[in-house]
Simulated assay, not measured.
Amino acid sequence: MDTKTNDIAAVANRLVELCRTGQYDQAQQELYAEHAVSIEGAGQDADSITRGMAAIREKGKQWADNLVEVHGGSVSDPVIADGWFSVAMGLDATYKDMGRVAMKEIAVYQVRDGKITHEQFFYNTDKS
Rank of each mutant, 00 (worst) to 15 (best):
M1S: 15
M1K: 09
M1T: 13
D2L: 06
T3L: 13
T5Q: 12
D7I: 08
D7E: 07
A9N: 11
A9I: 08
A9L: 13
A10E: 07
V11Q: 04
A12S: 08
A12I: 04
N13P: 09
E17R: 00
C19Y: 09
R20P: 05
T21H: 02
T21D: 05
G22C: 05
G22M: 05
Y24K: 06
D25L: 12
D25K: 13
D25M: 14
D25V: 14
Q26H: 07
Q29A: 15
Y32A: 06
Y32T: 01
H35S: 11
H35G: 10
A36Y: 02
I39V: 14
E40C: 00
G41V: 10
A42C: 03
G43P: 00
G43R: 01
Q44I: 11
A46D: 13
A46C: 14
D47Q: 14
T50S: 02
T50Q: 02
G52H: 06
M53P: 12
A55K: 08
I56V: 14
I56L: 12
R57D: 11
E58A: 11
E58H: 00
K59L: 07
K59P: 04
G60Y: 04
Q62L: 08
W63T: 08
D65L: 02
D65W: 03
N66I: 07
L67R: 04
V68M: 03
E69N: 09
H71M: 09
G72P: 01
G73W: 13
G73C: 08
G73I: 05
S74M: 11
S74W: 13
V75S: 00
S76P: 07
S76D: 03
S76E: 05
S76M: 05
D77W: 06
D77E: 10
P78G: 05
V79I: 15
A81W: 02
D82W: 14
D82T: 12
D82I: 13
G83W: 03
F85L: 03
S86G: 04
S86P: 06
G90M: 07
G90Y: 04
G90W: 08
L91Q: 14
D92K: 11
T94L: 05
Y95A: 00
K96M: 10
K96W: 11
K96C: 07
D97A: 12
D97T: 15
D97W: 09
M98N: 15
G99D: 02
R100M: 12
R100F: 13
V101T: 10
V101L: 06
V101Y: 12
A102T: 08
A102P: 04
E105R: 07
A107K: 09
A107L: 09
V108A: 11
Y109G: 00
Q110N: 08
Q110L: 02
Q110P: 03
D113G: 01
D113P: 03
G114E: 00
G114M: 00
Q120I: 03
Y123P: 02
N124M: 13
D126H: 11
K127R: 10
S128M: 12
S128V: 10
S128R: 07
